[in-house]
Every structure is written in structure tokens, then in C-alpha cells.
């Protein structure tokens, strides 16, 4: 089993190094999981490459999240980190792509064209962390009320901060349904 996994690991490493050598900044293995730090502008290239590779079968975007490195020495590399969690249903292996974004106006390409599940996850990141996704079809808030200001998951948003919020429901239905 152990040997088997390593073979697949090697295949994935080879595939990534071969095809995306210019886009990967560094790689790291922590507690058995591989993470690849990538250039934020190239995320769609990766998605295209994964969907076109039948052997490795990386078609399952397991999760997508973001990390704020506010007031930490990691902030030098970029304050925000978008983490893509890819999983191969056939080879049963998981790895991460991580893209660092600057503190001012963080923006990255949307991958909803490739993975439909990214839709709500990108909306959630936009809502709670304030990262914009270029090309998202319907980038609205998803969890917090429409008139809530700020992005609650940022580290500089105080935990107990409460804003009075009155309009829970909009009278008009959202644009997408019209």
C-alpha cells in the first residue's frame, strides 16, 4: 500500500513538474500531504491540465479555502492565501495548490468554468475573506447579510464586533433568476 501510494505521488509530482514547471514557485510536504505554491495568474492553466489528464484523474475539487496571514512574518510573501484541495477519486490521493495574493485588492481568476463546485466556495471566500474572483458568473455575498460591512474571517476583523443589521431579506429576487 505504502509503495503504491508513493508511485502515484511520483507520477503526480512528475506531471506537475513537467507541465507547470514555470508556474510552481515551491513545493512542500507536511504530514504526508503535498502542497504546491503556485503563481496566482496560472490557476486556470492547472485546472485545464488536470481535466485533460485521464491517467491521473484529478477531477474532484474537494475543497477551496483561504487563509489570512495578517501580522505574521508569512505576510511578506503575500497576505492572503487561496488553497485549492484537489483529490483523485481513482488514485485516492490528495494535494494542495496554494496561491499567495497581496493585501491590496486581492484578486484571482475564477475556476467555475472548470469545476462547478467552485461557485459557492468562491462566493463564500469573497464574502468572508474579501478576495475577488475574476470571471465568476454571480459573485454575491452568500453567508452574511447584504448590508454587513467588512469581511469577518480577516484577522483584523474583531471577533466580538457586531453591526446592527436590519435588512435580512431583500424584497427583490436576485438578478440571476430574472
Amino acid at each position: 500500500m505504502e509503495h503504491n501510494l508513493n508511485e502515484i505521488e511520483e507520477k503526480i509530482l512528475d506531471f506537475l513538474e513537467d507541465k507547470f514547471s514555470g508556474s510552481i514557485i515551491s513545493r512542500d510536504k507536511f504530514r504526508g500531504d503535498w502542497s504546491f505554491f503556485i503563481k496566482p495568474n496560472d490557476i486556470t492553466l492547472f485546472c485545464k491540465g488536470f481535466l485533460n489528464n485521464y491517467e491521473l484523474d484529478i477531477k474532484y475539487l474537494s475543497d477551496m479555502t483561504s487563509v489570512d496571514w495578517f501580522d505574521h512574518e508569512e505576510e511578506k510573501k503575500g497576505r492572503f492565501e487561496v488553497v485549492y484541495n484537489f483529490y483523485s477519486l481513482k488514485n485516492k490521493i490528495r494535494f494542495f495548490l496554494k496561491a499567495r495574493l497581496p493585501a491590496e485588492n486581492p484578486e484571482i481568476d475564477s475556476i467555475t468554468n472548470y469545476f462547478a463546485s467552485a461557485d459557492w466556495m468562491e462566493r463564500e471566500i469573497f464574502d468572508l475573506m474579501g478576495i475577488k474572483f475574476k470571471g465568476h458568473p454571480d459573485l454575491r455575498k452568500i453567508l452574511t447579510p447584504d448590508d454587513l460591512e467588512g469581511h469577518p474571517l480577516r484577522r483584523d476583523y474583531p471577533l466580538t464586533w457586531e453591526q446592527p443589521v436590519f435588512t435580512w431579506n431583500k424584497d427583490d429576487p436576485p438578478e440571476v433568476i430574472k
Binding site: S62, S66, V67, D68, H72, V83, N85
Partner: peptide, 10 residues
């Protein structure tokens, strides 16, 4: 620094 829950229901 960050805890993210991957929610299946979501």
C-alpha cells in the same frame, strides 16, 4: 491561524 470546515451539506 485558520480553521476551515469542508461542509458536506453545503
Amino acid at each position: 491561524n485558520r480553521v476551515r470546515v469542508r461542509p458536506p451539506s453545503f
